[in-house]
Amino acid sequence: METTDKMRVDVERSIQQSVEDISETIRALLAERGIFALNLISSPGSGKTTLIEALLSRYEGKGTVAVIEGDLETEIDADRIRKHGVNVLQINTRSGCHIQPIQLLNALRRMDLSDTRLLIVENVGNLVCPAEVPLGEDKRIVLLSVTEGDEKPLKYPLIFQTSDVLIITKTDLLPYVKFDMDRVRRAARIANPRIEIFELSAVTGEGVPAFLDRIESFGDAKRPRP
C-alpha cells in the first residue's frame, strides 16, 4: 500500500532570486562595456522625462548617451527624447507596473551600445514596484515633486531606503503648495543615511547644474573601458 509522508523542506532563499540573477547579468554587461547606468523612479508626472531632457542638453552631440523609456503604453516619451539626437528605445510594459530586468536585458541586447558611456533608464511611473526590482544600475535616483506632498517617504519607505539620490523637483512651485522640505529631507535620511539630496526646478533651471555636475562625476568615477 502507498504511504504518504509529510516533510518540511528548508528553502531559505530570496523570493526574487531569478530577478536578482538577471540584474547581475545586466550589471556585468554594463561593466564590461564601461557604461554607467541610472535608474530613474518616481510617481507619474514628477518630471523624469523633463529631467532627462535637461541632462541631454549637457551631453548633446556627444553620442555617448542611451536612454530607455519605460511606459505601460505609447512612444510619447521616446519621441520626446529622440529629438535630442540620442540613442533611445521604448519598452512598453502593457500591464506591467515596472521594467523587469529581462525586458531591460533584451532591450540592451537589441541596441548598438558601442559608443555608449551613460545609460539612463526611465522606469514606469510608480513608487512601489520599481523599488523592489534591481536593474543592475549604478545609481538609483528617486524623484519627488513638491506637488506630491511631503509624506511620500513615510508612505513608500522602500524606494527611499534603496535609492542613492533623491531629487526634489518643481521647486519653483513651493510658494503654492504645502511641502515641508526639512521634513522630507529628514525622513529620507532616516530611511537611508547615505542618500544624496538635490532640489531643483527644470523650468527655472535653479539647482539643475549642481545635479548635472554630480552625474558627470559619478560617470567619471566608473572605471573606463580597458
Partner: peptide
C-alpha cells in the same frame, strides 16, 4: 516606517531592516 521616535517623538533616529522577502520552508507530502 517611522520618521520620529515612537516613544519620545525625537528625530535622532535611524530605521533599519523590514525589507525581507524570503521563502523560509515548504511543507510537502
Amino acid at each position: 516606517f517611522a520618521w520620529e521616535c515612537p516613544k519620545c517623538k525625537g528625530y535622532e533616529i535611524s530605521v533599519q531592516g523590514g525589507d525581507a522577502l524570503e521563502i523560509v520552508s515548504v511543507d510537502i507530502e
